[in-house]
Design a protein around this nucleic acid. Structure first.
Length: 938
RNA sequence: GCCUUGAUGGCGGAAUUGGUAGACGCGCUGGACUCAAAAUCCAGUGGAGGCAACUCCGUGGGGGUUCGAUUCCCCCUCGAGGUACCA
């Protein structure tokens, strides 16, 4: 029998499906292990070879855990709500549900070919009403909760109402965006609308005025990634920030917990740092500067209250609400000119050009709270409205930016930190001794910060304050293809919950947003107006709603009573291993951690964190092959020039680089890739314009191309479909090759240079069982010591590789093992049986086939005997020791494994070759590294 | 700028974490089989020198610790990813 991957793979695919081999039960008698992939958005383009990298790795690990006796949950599903499907609907009129269903079908077919052990009976699909019903339910829970600071967890809104009735706003210690305070009496007298508004400012899911990207010309709201440099990506029309009522989630209430619990999870340091930066905790003081001639005070945040005596001016963000109030008559002109200038600058200008110092004086003065001096109030764009209070006290002596500003506008600089004892310290480093600072003089910066805060609190001009960069999450999208909010408003605009779930999306055929920037849902009047005369919310939830809890649904995917049962979640607990791309480092991971903590507060999940361990697999990039095309034409014909000849044609600046389909290119991905005669012919026929083109080839008749590494994308004509690779080499080969390519977490360009080696390996592996005539050659006799050593070396290597997620070395170990067994002519059943089990996670099809051929009736994946190595087979009676003189190998000596170090030393020194090297030198030391080497120092 | 990473043959990458650097694969060279090719198999393959045994040099560069450094420490160069007037 020949190795025919196609036949084998089809055969076992059917077998697995028919016998439901991968169906997982919630079986408390077995230890659980949960392996999760970040579920894909089913895009129209289908899978390319980069997508399955993580799925292959997670599948290998799942199968390994399963073979080791664990009950493994390894599900798959689709993140199927989202913008692209809606955009496609706008262009083509095809309903997103239809295009999405088609794409999911295609994904599933592609995935199945690759031999994944997904339990499809647990498939999750975020746009299915059976699923989003529960997303809506969780939203309702968020809506009906507030964050109690005393309990440090979420609590029901009903508790809050009870407290308000008893003691007004003072009766609760809760996270909120409410400004005023009120008594129990006030609360009782509030109108329904006032009560609603008040509660809204406490709810974890709440409504507030937020800003959206509004494009007047297109008459629509745009997502952030549809806006480029302040203009719409499509059409290039101006985009403005327009205030609209928006739903938001109070993730900020969880900022500290999200930060603290990072300590308990196994994420890469890089990712933890990203999350920490995103949360952006900073400790400092919030304090007030009295404004001269005004009743109000200016509130600022600073992390350096110790430097307060160096504060020589104040700076407000141009958008600060006090700017208009403070500006004096004679400064009006320059301030409005400056505001005009700021407005003219795009977001991008502000970001790229951070060096330019600009600003304007308002004419107003603040009073320094300690010295009582008048200090001028300026405005400048380097102070951001969105952070802290949008105002700062500027300390030019100890802050780089303030310093630049002061020098530019010739403002006074008072040194307050003496850093002379620390020559390497730079401005702003929290190190040194306080000077010119009244009661702080002589203190270290660290002590001074504490003392300053104490004094500020004593004088009641401010408080110690922890500030977070993290913002509440905007939860509204003016779109159709998302979860509708289970919310409706009565005639007084009071918010009500829609309890009848799911609140399904109504049918629709016009997907354009309305001219007011509302979701197309707003046009479906019989849906918007409910039978009880209320008006529905027409915004929908963003993409991260459904993906924030999908991993919990897999635990109990077909439950129609609850999102998941307590039994299921108590058994599966959390995700043991989560694999996905690093692009979700902050978004998805932060939101789902937040939701999980919220559900934990409600007692619905037992764990504090959703994911124990996370691995970010690298991207498989594409190779982009470009041909050089001259900018000018000859007799209206295009001219393509070989890369080695472009100097003759005026160099790079006279050429454009045109990406060409990689299939035409010989040697693609290598520095000397080129189009040969055949490639040129294919390229000619590729595009009508190329038909008559002139090709300036080199003297070998080749048109050299220029290769670079980049995204795999239709645009670059470099998409490689896994189906094609599988058709040629088989899925087992594809799986092993993707692993063999390099470490899981590294990004690497796709190339097929080495795939023949893996393919050859699989055929050689097969040839341990069948000879060239197809005869079964497995030997029933017991393996000898040499064979057992070879086997157990492999078992050890593969197990270590699996545990450390270096699957590339596992593949190498297999190759080495087969080479060795071939060399010693071993086809012993006992050895091959273990080898088949060992390879099963990597190459499930060939393993299943050979397992069956070995006479086993049941699927190999129902075994729980993954081989573990026996150290006894690895140690031999004697060990070959290299003997080094001063680190250089000079001889070698075979010694019994159990020899004492003294005896080894004596043996080594007695060796004639060693004596020759020693020759008159005195020995300083002999270092014996057991099982490794002997080093003699002379 | 800051943070996180990384740098090893012609290429992808190994190295049990301080112990014979370059496993495994690709590519390349030579050979066997073949009319021939493909496939397969065998041998070689870091560099320099030597007929050879062998010698010297070699893990981005420079220094250090050590009997011994790809591995640990300091400085520098370059690459990748993230992030940015965050007060």
């Amino acid at each position: 029998m020949d190795y025919q991957p196609r036949d084998i793979e089809q055969k076992w695919q059917k077998f697995w499906e028919k016998n439901e081999i991968y169906k997982v039960k919630n079986d408390p008698s077995k230890p659980k292990y949960y392996v999760l992939d970040m579920f894909p958005y089913p895009s129209g383009a289908g899978l390319h070879v980069g997508h399955p990298l993580g799925y292959i790795a997670s599948d290998i690990f799942s199968r390994y855990k399963r073979l080791s006796g664990f009950n493994v949950l390894h599900p798959m599903g689709y993140d199927s709500f989202g913008l692209p499907a809606e955009q496609y609907a706008i262009q083509t009129g095809v309903h997103p549900a239809d295009s999405t269903a088609e794409n999911m079908q295609r994904y599933r077919e592609q995935l199945n070919k690759l031999g994944f052990s997904f339990d499809w009976s647990r498939e999750v699909n975020t746009s299915n009403p059976d699923y989003y019903k529960w997303t809506q339910q969780i939203f309702i829970w968020l809506f009906e909760s507030y964050y109690d600071k005393t309990l440090d967890k979420a609590a029901p809104i009903s508790n809050l109402i009870a407290a308000f009735e008893k003691g007004g706003s003072a009766a609760v210690n809760a996270v909120n965006s409410n400004e005023g305070s009120f008594s129990a009496e006030d609360w009782k007298n509030f109108s329904a609308k006032e009560k609603d508004d008040t509660l809204m400012s406490y709810r974890l899911a709440y409504r507030k005025v937020g800003y959206v990207n509004w494009c007047e010309e297109l008459g629509t709201v745009l997502a952030n990634d549809e806006v480029k440099d302040g203009r719409s990506e499509r059409g290039g029309y101006p985009v403005v920030q327009k205030p609209m009522m928006q739903w938001a989630l109070r993730i900020t209430a969880y900022a500290q917990r999200l930060l603290d619990d990072l300590e308990s999870v196994d994420f890469s340091e890089a990712l933890k740092v990203q999350q920490r930066n995103w949360i952006g905790r900073s400790e400092g003081a919030q304090l007030f500067f009295q404004l001269e001639g005004h009743d109000s005070a200016l509130e600022i945040f600073t992390t350096r209250p110790d430097t307060i005596f160096g504060a020589t001016f104040m700076v407000l963000a141009p958008e600060h609400e006090l700017v208009e109030v403070l500006t004096t008559a004679d400064q009006k002109k320059s301030v409005s000119e400056y505001l005009h200038y700021v407005e003219s600058r795009s977001e991008r200008d502000r970001m790229t050009d951070v060096k330019t110092v600009s600003g304007a004086f308002t004419g107003a003065y603040a009073i320094h709270p300690f010295s009582g001096k008048k200090i001028p109030v300026w405005i400048s764009e380097y102070v951001l409205a969105g952070y802290g209070t949008g105002a700062i006290m500027a300390v030019p002596s100890d802050d780089e930016r303030d310093n630049r500003f002061a020098k530019h506008f010739d403002l006074p600089i008072i040194p307050v930190v003496d850093q002379s004892a620390f020559p390497n310290a730079e401005i702003g480093d929290k190190i040194g001794t306080m000077i010119n600072s009244d009661f702080l003089n002589g203190m270290s910066v660290k002590d001074a910060i504490k003392a300053a805060i104490d004094e500020i609190e004593a004088k009641e001009i401010g408080t110690k304050k922890i500030n977070f960069r993290l913002r509440d999450a905007n939860f509204s999208r003016q779109r159709y293809w998302g979860e509708p909010f289970p919310i409706k408003y009565d005639s007084n605009a009071v918010t009500h919950i829609e309890h009848q779930l799911p609140l399904a999306l109504p049918p629709l055929d016009n997907f354009q947003p309305t001219s007011e920037g509302h979701s197309p849902l707003a046009r479906v009047s019989d849906w918007v107006i409910t039978s009880d005369g209320m008006t529905r919310e027409t915004d929908t939830m963003p993409g991260f709603a459904g993906s924030s809890w999908y991993f919990l649904r897999y635990m109990d995917a077909n439950n129609s009573e609850d999102p998941f049962s307590q039994e299921a979640v108590n058994y599966w607990q959390d995700v043991d291993l989560y694999l996905g791309g690093a692009e979700h480092a902050v978004g998805h991971l932060m939101y789902s951690r937040f939701w999980h903590k919220f559900m934990h507060d409600l007692g619905k999940v037992p764990t504090k964190e959703p994911y124990k361990k996370l691995i970010n697999q690298g991207m498989i990039q594409g190779v982009i092959e470009n041909v050089y095309m001259l900018k000018e034409r000859r007799e209206s014909k295009l001219i393509f020039v070989s890369a080695d000849r472009i100097q003759e044609f005026g160099g790079e600046e006279n050429c454009a680089q045109v990406p060409v389909y990689v299939g035409f290119v010989s040697n693609y991905g290598n520095p000397d890739s080129y189009l040969n005669e055949e490639g040129i012919e294919q390229f000619r026929n590729w595009r009508p314009d190329n038909k008559e083109a002139i090709f300036e080839t080199n003297d070998k008749g080749q048109l050299l191309t220029h290769s670079e590494v980049g995204k795999m994308s239709k645009r670059y004509h470099n998409v490689v479909n896994p189906d094609d690779v599988v058709a040629q080499y088989g899925a087992d080969c594809f799986r092993m090759y993707e692993m063999f390519l390099g470490p899981l977490e590294d990004s690497k360009p796709w190339n097929e240079n080495g795939i023949s080696g893996v393919s050859k390996f699989l055929r050689r592996f097969w040839s341990l069982f069948y000879d060239q005539q197809g005869n079964w050659i497995v030997d029933e006799s017991a393996p000898n010591a040499k064979e057992l050593k070879a086997l157990h070396t492999t078992i050890k290597g593969v197990n270590n590789g699996l545990k450390s997620f270096s699957f590339n070395t596992c593949v190498s170990d297999f190759m080495k093992s087969v080479n060795e067994l071939k060399e010693i002519g071993c086809t012993k059943r006992a050895v091959l049986t273990d080898l088949v089990l060992l390879i099963a996670p990597f190459a499930p099809y060939i393993a299943e086939e050979l397992w069956n051929a070995l006479g086993n009736k049941d699927s190999i994946f129902n075994q729980t005997k993954f081989p573990t190595h026996n150290e006894a087979f690895l140690v031999s009676d004697t060990i070959e020791y290299p003997i080094c003189i001063n680190g250089k190998k000079r001889a070698s000596l075979e010694l019994p494994a159990d020899m004492t170090q003294d005896a080894m030393k004596a043996e080594a020194l007695a060796l004639d070759e060693v004596k020759k090297w020693l020759d008159g030198n005195s020995i300083q030391k002999v270092i014996i590294v057991p099982k490794k080497m002997i080093n003699i120092v002379i």
